[in-house]
Nucleic acid binder design. Structure first.
Length: 117
DNA sequence: CCGTTGACGCCAT
DNA sequence: TATGGCGCCAACG
């Protein structure tokens, strides 16, 4: 994945890495923007992760629905195509969603910094 | 070029 | 423990 640890990272590289990491999230598990941002070496750029995912629908096989905020809240559900809702997609994989919130979030949480390092 | 916005997160109350 | 404020970095108008 070639991420730079120089603090600064190239935008294109960052976006590409985000997609790759998200693709690595196991089915039925979820991760968080902050975790991914950290993994890419941009701790303070958690917002960029979400921004990057916003454009990951066009033809890309990126399971963006497996990425939620640090509270396990589906903060970006309204961004999903109406024919493929975020919560629906998650429940289809066995993830329970109640009031736009991932149940047992801590259990199914998947941290790239820990799981794959 | 400058101000605002946003799929977030941490720190201070 | 629950809220609110500030910081961060790109993209947009």
């Amino acid at each position: 994945m070639n991420r730079k640890k120089t603090g600064k990272i190239d935008r294109a590289q960052f976006y590409a890495d985000v997609y790759e990491v998200v693709k690595l999230i196991p089915k039925g598990r979820v991760s968080s923007y902050g975790a991914i941002a950290r993994y890419l070496g941009a701790n303070k750029a958690s917002r960029l992760v979400g921004y990057a995912l916003a454009g990951s629908f066009e033809g890309m096989d990126v399971p963006a629905h497996r990425v939620v905020n640090r509270n396990g809240l589906l903060s970006g559900a309204h961004n999903f195509p109406k024919d493929r809702p975020m919560d629906k997609s998650l429940e289809a994989e066995g993830v329970k969603i109640v009031d736009m919130q991932v149940q047992d979030f801590k259990k199914i949480y998947w941290d790239p910094n820990v799981e794959l390092l």
